[in-house]
Design a protein around this nucleic acid. Structure first.
Lengths: 184, 184
DNA sequence: TGGCTCATGTAATCTGTTACATGATTCT
DNA sequence: AGAATCATGTAACAGATTACATGAGCCA
């Protein structure tokens, strides 16, 4: 109880909106959160079971489309604990970019090999940006002043803006390192 | 040998420039890397010893200013392994922002409590930005086309640009959530 | 029938932090 | 004299990933 582990609260947060299976929780994270939070099944399922043990979530064995699933639902205690955590000050924001590490020591391998890292980074960002832009557009359209959309829009916008800033930096880096503009 | 652990290479990278003590390594990270990579003594010292075991680094007991220190120096094998790692493709870039998590679920606690998280985030960024700007300016001035400065400038510029993008997002977030512009 | 997605979970392992433990030197 | 910084390290623990293990339903 009163565990500090953040996975607890991420899952409680998702379940506070609707009941989900472990598999669906993973998918939500991968589509909505991925750029600022990720998790594997190896942490999701054990966390769900510990939440059940603590009475913060209930587990229901259901059959849907002839498929057996475990549906998890947040309890009143779970909702309460989630709110308590949400108001606590943030304890850690972390960026850990191996790409920057390799760029920092780029002098050891020279500009052309360093540029490869920058190109790869750029490709990943360009690949992920459209879904963020799509989310921003969709959430902007449904400007219903309603419930949670405003907050989803804020995080999606963060992703979009930061990814755009990354791409600007890539252009700058290519200029500095004398890379040609040929992508791909 | 052939360990994947990145701390190995971060330390080898720092030592490839000059011999350092564990304490100095920590300081370098805290001043130069902090925004994209961090580590505690609890991982630095054991890593250094394992690097010595593997013959990638040598350990020398010296006395300086009446103080006993362990000075670590990279070996030829260490330099070689570092270069080999630097050219390998990046395996992971990770951003894990608890702040965004709390903003995402902000609907549960409302705009004013969510704005507190945004204000705290903004304060931290504003606090760290000047040192990045200072680094960029200093590295821009010594435009000597020389050795590693170009690469240091690239990473510092990344930090500066991204932090500026964060601040722009904070302004947007405050507007969306109806926060007053009173900082501090 | 074969491959993909849906679906759940465990065990081993990895990587790192926090807290503890200690002590000298330098600054005020 | 006391606080801050310099300096090194360990032990316990936390938190998460990877690989493994398994199996059903859906689509081509």
């Amino acid at each position: 109880m009163a565990n500090e582990k953040k996975m607890n609260f991420v899952i409680l947060g998702l379940l506070s909106h609707e009941s989900l299976t472990g598999y669906e929780i993973k998918k939500r994270m991968d589509t909505t959160f991925k750029f600022f939070w990720s998790a594997s099944y190896g942490s999701i399922y054990p966390t769900l079971n510990s939440l059940v043990q603590d009475g913060l979530v209930t587990k229901l064995d259901i059959t849907e489309n002839g498929r057996d699933k475990m549906l998890y639902t947040i309890t009143a205690a779970g909702k309460e604990l989630l709110k308590q955590w949400l108001v606590l000050p943030v304890t850690k924001d972390e960026l850990r970019y191996e790409t920057l590490m390799k760029v920092f020591f780029g002098g050891k391998i020279g500009p052309s090999l360093t540029l490869e890292h920058i190109h790869n980074f750029e490709s990943k960002i360009k690949n992920d940006l459209p879904s963020l832009e799509g989310a921003v557009q969709k959430l902007t359209e449904i400007q219903d002043e309603e419930d949670d959309h405003k907050y989803f829009l804020l995080t999606a916008t963060f992703g979009k803006q930061i990814y755009e800033a990354y791409l600007e930096w890539c252009e700058y880096a290519k200029k500095i390192l004398g890379g040609t503009s040929s992508n791909q």
